[in-house]
Lab assay of single mutants.
Amino acid sequence: MQNSHSGVNQLGGVFVNGRPLPDSTRQKIVELAHSGARPCDISRILQVSNGCVSKILGRYYETGSIRPRAIGGSKPRVATPEVVSKIAQYKRECPSIFAWEIRDRLLSEGVCTNDNIPSVSSINRVLRNLASEKQQMGADGMYDKLRMLNGQTGSWGTRPGWYPGTSVPGQPTQDGCQQQEGGGENTNSISSNGEDSDEAQMRLQLKRKLQRNRTSFTQEQIEALEKEFERTHYPDVFARERLAAKIDLPEARIQVWFSNRRAKWRREEKLRNQRRQASNTPSHIPISSSFSTSVYQPIPQPTTPVSSFTSGSMLGRTDTALTNTYSALPPMPSFTMANNLPMQPPVPSQTSSYSCMLPTSPSVNGRSYDTYTPPHMQTHMNSQPMGTSGTTSTGLISPGVSVPVQVPGSEPDMSQYWPRLQ
């Protein structure tokens, strides 16, 4: 039975679970980093996980050691009161100082060594604690504590007292930064006198190289990059290397530039699409467009005044059976039934097929058609009795279509119309 579990990581490298990497692998990681390889490249070359490479390099940059820390136990506290007071002093002298600059000053002034120097995250935590204590304490208590930490007896009751030896409130920041720059020169002199001055200088240079600022491109470089971006948004590694040799930039910087440029292009394309949609959409909808001609068919113009009344309900007709019959029939052209047409008796099958359309009241044959006459024609229609054979009435077949029909004066039988409509 094995005491430890061995495995293979996602890159194909072998590791022992819970145990640190061998010293030979750690040394190779540092050597590759000094030669300029990126952590992701080191991870692929040595088949070590990216997190492990970053952790080893980060500890090497901070402490200069590649040895693993002790497994188990607690780390001794490195942010001692003396170190905290120095950090507060540096922050007062130059409020814009960075944590890694404070760390360098602690090393250069001999406050800490490589073994007990606090990390950048520890210094940031100390600065946050100082800021929170400043908010919790009152103004007087804060000034007393700062005077105690600074070891001075001057008056701290006013704002300019934060910067000793100065009279203009805006000047101390520059003086403090100048003092810090002077301390940086002392850093070089002190570290050069040490035993491991060369190694420390190499480590600091490598650290500065990794902690780079934003790349500033010249106009020629920007023009070359934009020209390549117009050709393709995704250049391959050969195109990037050719462009890197042409404009004297690292291939990694060119790759990052193209990634950022593609993101910018997507944002601009989104804005262009929004403007295009806004320009195509009308600002207001016309009133006429809300009524579609496919839904509402136009009603033909009436030929006679009587045809303006298109349904039985508008003429005072309360018989719903006839109203439904007229509205359900398709529109037909106007025609006239003459008196000489043969009077065919209704076929029983045809009569039964339209039995649902006729009223059940037996008085329908005896009703006159003056009910369908509009009010303004009552006088004219009353002067001509319906009993004469020459009287013409208008029957409504569908809305908007008038059918003048000659009705025999002897017997106005409704059943004569249905064979004609089939």
Results as ranks from 00 to 15, higher is better:
residue 19 R to K: 13
residue 24 S to W: 07
residue 143 Y to F: 12
residue 127 L to N: 15
residue 86 K to I: 06
residue 87 I to T: 07
residue 150 N to I: 08
residue 5 H to Y: 09
residue 148 M to S: 09
residue 67 R to A: 15
residue 52 C to H: 00
residue 123 I to M: 04
residue 150 N to V: 06
residue 75 K to I: 05
residue 63 T to S: 06
residue 51 G to K: 03
residue 129 N to T: 13
residue 74 S to L: 01
residue 16 V to R: 15
residue 6 S to E: 10
residue 138 G to D: 14
residue 67 R to W: 05
residue 59 R to D: 05
residue 51 G to W: 00
residue 111 V to G: 09
residue 92 R to A: 10
residue 148 M to D: 15
residue 147 R to V: 13
residue 29 I to D: 04
residue 12 G to Y: 03
residue 77 R to L: 03
residue 127 L to F: 06
residue 105 R to E: 08
residue 43 S to R: 01
residue 74 S to P: 04
residue 16 V to N: 12
residue 89 Q to A: 09
residue 148 M to Q: 13
residue 5 H to G: 13
residue 6 S to F: 15
residue 81 P to K: 11
residue 25 T to P: 02
residue 99 A to E: 01
residue 50 N to Y: 12
residue 73 G to E: 01
residue 41 D to Y: 05
residue 80 T to G: 04
residue 148 M to I: 09
residue 10 Q to R: 13
residue 26 R to A: 01
residue 124 N to I: 00
residue 135 Q to Y: 12
residue 8 V to F: 08
residue 69 R to F: 07
residue 41 D to H: 08
residue 127 L to M: 04
residue 135 Q to S: 12
residue 21 L to Y: 07
residue 132 S to P: 09
residue 3 N to K: 14
residue 65 S to T: 08
residue 114 N to K: 13
residue 51 G to I: 00
residue 85 S to W: 09
residue 131 A to I: 10
residue 122 S to E: 00
residue 72 G to F: 00
residue 28 K to T: 07
residue 82 E to S: 09
residue 104 D to V: 10
residue 103 R to C: 06
residue 81 P to V: 08
residue 21 L to P: 01
residue 44 R to D: 05
residue 126 V to N: 07
residue 78 V to Q: 02
residue 53 V to I: 09
residue 108 S to F: 11
residue 119 S to A: 04
residue 53 V to H: 02
residue 135 Q to P: 09
residue 130 L to N: 11
residue 73 G to C: 04
residue 118 P to F: 00
residue 33 A to G: 06
residue 74 S to D: 01
residue 67 R to V: 08
residue 88 A to H: 07
residue 53 V to E: 00
residue 42 I to P: 03
residue 138 G to P: 11
residue 127 L to C: 12
residue 89 Q to F: 13
residue 35 S to A: 13
residue 9 N to H: 02
residue 18 G to L: 01
residue 131 A to R: 15
residue 31 E to G: 08
residue 133 E to S: 14
residue 77 R to E: 01
residue 99 A to W: 00
residue 37 A to Y: 15
residue 40 C to S: 11
residue 18 G to N: 00
residue 147 R to Q: 14
residue 102 I to Q: 06
residue 15 F to H: 04
residue 117 I to N: 15
residue 142 M to A: 11
residue 110 G to L: 11
residue 8 V to S: 03
residue 71 I to V: 14
residue 55 K to R: 05
residue 15 F to E: 00
residue 103 R to N: 06
residue 117 I to W: 15
residue 2 Q to V: 14
residue 112 C to F: 04
residue 93 E to K: 09
residue 74 S to H: 04
residue 84 V to D: 03
residue 14 V to A: 10
residue 46 L to A: 01
residue 10 Q to I: 04
residue 106 L to G: 00
residue 139 A to M: 09
residue 117 I to C: 14
residue 44 R to I: 04
residue 39 P to Y: 07
residue 91 K to R: 05
residue 113 T to R: 14
residue 146 L to P: 11
residue 18 G to I: 01
residue 30 V to Y: 01
residue 125 R to K: 04
residue 135 Q to V: 09
residue 110 G to R: 13
residue 25 T to M: 07
residue 62 E to A: 14
residue 78 V to P: 02
residue 128 R to V: 02
residue 46 L to T: 08
residue 39 P to W: 03
residue 48 V to R: 03
residue 71 I to W: 07
residue 15 F to L: 03
residue 22 P to R: 06
residue 107 L to S: 14
residue 134 K to I: 07
residue 59 R to V: 08
residue 52 C to I: 00
residue 6 S to M: 15
residue 61 Y to G: 06
residue 41 D to C: 04
residue 140 D to F: 09
residue 128 R to H: 04
residue 55 K to E: 02
residue 148 M to A: 15
residue 87 I to F: 06
residue 2 Q to F: 11
residue 13 G to V: 01
residue 27 Q to I: 11
residue 24 S to T: 12
residue 136 Q to L: 10
residue 145 K to D: 13
residue 30 V to K: 07
residue 137 M to H: 11
residue 64 G to S: 04
residue 109 E to T: 12
residue 108 S to R: 11
residue 148 M to P: 15
residue 124 N to R: 11
residue 45 I to F: 09
residue 14 V to T: 13
residue 116 N to Y: 09
residue 102 I to T: 04
residue 64 G to D: 05
residue 101 E to V: 11
residue 142 M to F: 14
residue 135 Q to R: 12
residue 2 Q to C: 11
residue 8 V to Y: 07
residue 80 T to I: 06
residue 76 P to T: 05
residue 142 M to W: 13
residue 27 Q to P: 02
residue 150 N to A: 14
residue 79 A to D: 04
residue 46 L to V: 09
residue 18 G to P: 03
residue 64 G to A: 04
residue 146 L to M: 14
residue 90 Y to Q: 07
residue 30 V to Q: 05
residue 73 G to V: 05
residue 93 E to Y: 07
residue 20 P to S: 03
residue 16 V to Q: 15
residue 92 R to G: 10
residue 15 F to T: 00
residue 4 S to M: 12
residue 86 K to G: 09
residue 92 R to T: 15
residue 37 A to E: 07
residue 24 S to H: 14
residue 4 S to F: 09
residue 105 R to I: 08
residue 44 R to Y: 05
residue 143 Y to I: 12
residue 92 R to D: 14
residue 141 G to A: 11
residue 138 G to C: 08
residue 107 L to M: 14
residue 78 V to C: 03
residue 13 G to L: 02
residue 146 L to H: 15
residue 30 V to H: 02
residue 133 E to P: 10
residue 47 Q to W: 01
residue 50 N to D: 03
residue 7 G to T: 12
residue 45 I to E: 09
residue 85 S to H: 10
residue 65 S to F: 04
residue 137 M to Q: 14
residue 101 E to T: 05
residue 125 R to Q: 00
residue 45 I to T: 11
residue 69 R to H: 09
residue 31 E to K: 07
residue 146 L to T: 15
residue 78 V to D: 01
residue 146 L to S: 13
residue 62 E to N: 06
residue 70 A to D: 07
residue 57 L to Q: 00
residue 85 S to N: 12
residue 119 S to I: 03
residue 46 L to F: 04
residue 102 I to Y: 07
residue 70 A to P: 14
residue 139 A to K: 13
residue 4 S to P: 14
residue 95 P to E: 10
residue 21 L to N: 00
residue 64 G to T: 00
